[in-house]
Amino acid sequence: MKKLRIEDKLYLVGYNVDHDNNHLGISDPEVCKTACQKRQCTYVCPANVYTWDEKEEKININYDACLECGTCRFACDYITWKYPRGGFGVAYKFG
């Protein structure tokens, strides 16, 4: 059976993306540059929402893909996390 990448799987997920609001953030992006050793947000997120941008030296947040599990907010104290506005975000078919 072919291994599926996260990107492949996210095509199967229904979203109602809130184009006006990003519900995710980082309270102190300076911390990501040096103080943060592991940058765990870049690998614990099941939707690959967080990626490290070498050039800009910052974490990019692709909030469109968020599955709203909240793993990142438990894994990192600097991530600010709230629910997307009512009706927006992930909408599972099966659950």
Binding site: M1, L4, I6, V13, P46, A47, C69, T71, Y92
Partner: peptide, 10 residues
């Protein structure tokens, strides 16, 4: 089998 949905929850 064919994957139909991918989900995550804490």
């Amino acid at each position: 089998g064919e994957t139909k949905e991918y989900l995550a929850h804490v």
